[in-house]
Simulated assay, not measured.
Amino acid sequence: MDYSTTVLSTEKIKVGFIGNCFLTHPVAYQIRAFIRLYNRSEFEFYGYNPWFCSAKEDELSQWFQATFDHFYSFGTDAFGIAQQIHDDKIDVLIDLDSCTSDITYQVLTLKAAAIQATWVGFDAIGLPTVDYFIVDPYVLPQGAQAWYTETLWRLPDCYLSLDGYEVANKAGIREQLGLSTDTVVFMCAQRASKIQPEILKLQFAIVEAVPNAVLIIKYHRSSKVFEEWCRSFAQANQFDVSKLYFLTPNPPQIHRANYYEVDVVLDTYPYAGGGMSLEALWMEVPIVTKVGQQFVARHTYTFLKNVGVEEGIAWTDEEYVNWGIRFGTEPDLRQRVSWKLRQAKRSAPLWNPQRFSREMEKALSAMVHRYRTGELVVPPRHCVGE
Score class of each variant (00 low, 15 high):
356 F>L: 09
333 L>W: 02
306 N>C: 12
348 A>S: 14
309 V>L: 09
341 L>V: 00
337 V>N: 12
321 V>E: 08
331 P>K: 06
341 L>G: 03
320 Y>T: 03
308 G>P: 02
346 R>C: 09
360 M>E: 08
357 S>W: 07
362 K>L: 04
344 A>Q: 03
358 R>Y: 03
306 N>L: 10
312 G>Y: 09
324 G>P: 00
319 E>F: 01
329 T>M: 08
311 E>S: 11
324 G>E: 01
318 E>P: 04
324 G>V: 01
350 L>V: 13
303 F>Y: 15
340 K>Q: 15
329 T>S: 08
352 N>F: 00
316 T>K: 04
335 Q>G: 06
337 V>R: 11
339 W>Y: 13
317 D>L: 03
353 P>W: 06
357 S>R: 04
333 L>Q: 08
350 L>G: 10
311 E>Y: 04
310 E>N: 13
325 I>W: 03
325 I>G: 00
327 F>V: 11
323 W>K: 13
306 N>A: 04
363 A>Y: 00
348 A>T: 10
318 E>H: 06
351 W>D: 02
317 D>Y: 02
346 R>S: 15
304 L>A: 02
342 R>P: 03
319 E>L: 01
344 A>P: 07
343 Q>S: 09
316 T>I: 05
315 W>F: 13
320 Y>S: 00
356 F>Q: 09
350 L>H: 11
333 L>H: 06
312 G>Q: 09
353 P>G: 07
338 S>K: 12
334 R>V: 05
324 G>C: 01
338 S>A: 13
331 P>M: 09
310 E>I: 01
345 K>T: 06
314 A>N: 09
310 E>Y: 08
335 Q>I: 01
351 W>P: 10
332 D>C: 04
352 N>H: 12
358 R>T: 13
328 G>N: 04
303 F>D: 10
314 A>Q: 11
330 E>D: 15
350 L>P: 14
311 E>T: 11
344 A>V: 05
342 R>T: 12
334 R>L: 07
362 K>P: 03
340 K>H: 13
356 F>G: 08
312 G>H: 07
336 R>C: 06
337 V>H: 09
349 P>F: 02
355 R>T: 15
305 K>S: 03
328 G>R: 07
360 M>Q: 10
312 G>P: 03
338 S>W: 07
364 L>P: 00
308 G>F: 07
310 E>M: 07
363 A>K: 00
330 E>K: 12
326 R>N: 06
360 M>Y: 14
342 R>V: 02
329 T>P: 02
303 F>S: 08
351 W>M: 11
325 I>F: 02
303 F>E: 08
323 W>L: 01
313 I>P: 00
353 P>K: 12
314 A>H: 12
301 Y>T: 09
331 P>L: 06
360 M>K: 07
324 G>S: 05
318 E>F: 06
